[in-house]
Design a protein around this nucleic acid. Structure first.
Lengths: 172, 172
DNA sequence: GAATAAAAATAAGATACCTTAAGAAATGAA
DNA sequence: TTCATTTCTTAAGGTATCTTATTTTTATTC
C-alpha cells in the first residue's frame, strides 16, 4: 500500500514506546510487520486503547502530527515490529501533495472516519457484551492474536469483566 | 461551507426527518441556519446522538453516501432550518474532484477524524460528569441552545442522570 | 526445564449509572 | 390566558460494570 513517502524504517521490540503523551510528533508510522497500539492514560493511570495497528496499518497522533501540538496519546509496540516512518517534513502541507496522493489520503481519512463513527455509536448504544461480539466480527484475526486485556481496554471494560463476558458467551 | 457543489436548498421544520435508517442517501446536508442532528435508535428504541449540525456544519451518513449502502442513522431537524444539499451525483467519485476541492475535503475529513478520536477517548476514559464538562467547554453555544435531553443523548447518559450531574455541579 | 513473571479466571463487595414513576416547570397552541 | 404537551427535576430501587483480592494458567527467562 501506499505512495506516501516514507523516510526510514526501523525494527522495534515489544514494549518499545515510539511516542509519548506530551511530545510533538514529526512522524506517522506505517506498520510492515508486527503490531502497535495507541492509548491514553487517565487520571488513575489506567490505559485506554484508541487504536491497534497490525500489518499495513498507519498509526499516529493525527492532531499532534498535523498541528504540531503535544500528543494526547502514547504509541507502543505490542509485538516485535518493523515500522516505516512517514516524515512530517515531506508530507507537511496537505496543499503540496500530488493529486493521486490527495485522493489516497482523503480516502484513508474518510474510511477511518466512517469506522470511528461506528465505534462511537457502539460505545453510546451497545452493552459491553455486544461491543465484544462486534469486535470479534470486525477483527477476527486480532481476537486470536491479542491478549484479552488489550481487547478489554479497546472496547472499554476491565479485563476481569471481559473475562466474565467470555465465560458467559462460551456457555451459550 | 465552501466550494463543494450544492444543488438545491430547502427550508425544513423542527421535527422533519431528512434521512431514515435503512435508506440509501444521495445527499450530504449543509446547514445554513438552524440545527440538525444525526442519531441511531437501539434495540430498546432509545435514541443515541452521533452529531449536531448547527450553522455551517455538514451532516450525512458518510458510509451510506459514499458506498451507497443503507444508512445506520436518522437525520432530523431540531430547529426550523435552511439546508443546502450536496448531491451524490456531482460529488460522486472522489477522483473527479479538483485539487482545491480535494484539499478542502481531505482537511474536513482529517479535522472531523481528530475530533471524533477525541470523543472516543472521552467515552473510554472519562466519567459522565467529565464528559458533560468537556461538552460545555467544546460547544458552549450548543449548551445554551439545546435541550438537556439531547445533550444527555450525545454524551451517552440518560436525561435523568444528566439532570443529577447538573445539580451536583451547581452546588460546587 | 525449573523458576519467575505476566495474564487470565473467579468471586465478593462497591459504585456509577439506569429504570421507573411522579410532580414541577417550561413551552407551545388555541 | 388557559389548556395541553414537552421538558426537567427528584427520588427509590435495580443492574451493569468496577475494584480488590486470590488462585490458576500461560508465557518468558536463565
Amino acid at each position: 500500500m501506499g505512495i506516501l513517502p516514507t523516510t526510514k524504517k526501523i525494527k522495534v521490540n515489544k514494549g518499545d514506546v515510539l511516542l509519548k503523551q506530551g511530545q510533538i510528533t514529526k512522524y506517522g508510522y506505517l506498520v510492515e510487520t508486527g503490531c502497535l497500539k495507541s492509548y491514553t492514560l487517565d487520571n488513575n493511570g489506567k490505559e485506554h486503547i484508541l487504536q491497534f495497528a497490525p500489518e499495513n496499518w498507519m498509526i499516529s497522533d493525527l492532531d499532534s502530527f498535523t498541528n504540531q501540538i503535544p500528543s494526547v496519546i502514547f504509541i507502543e509496540a505490542i509485538e516485535d515490529s518493523e515500522v516505516a516512518f512517514i516524515s512530517k517534513s515531506e508530507f507537511n502541507e496537505i496543499s503540496q501533495l500530488e493529486k493521486t496522493e490527495l485522493i489516497e489520503i482523503a480516502t484513508k481519512f474518510r474510511n477511518n472516519l466512517i469506522a470511528t463513527n461506528k465505534r462511537v455509536i457502539g460505545l453510546l448504544s451497545a452493552t459491553a457484551e455486544q461491543r465484544y461480539i462486534d469486535f470479534t466480527l470486525l477483527y477476527p484475526t486480532l481476537v486470536q492474536r491479542l491478549p484479552l486485556k488489550l481487547i478489554a481496554s479497546y472496547i472499554g471494560v476491565t479485563p476481569e469483566y471481559l473475562s466474565e463476558i467470555r465465560r458467559k458467551l462460551s456457555k451459550k
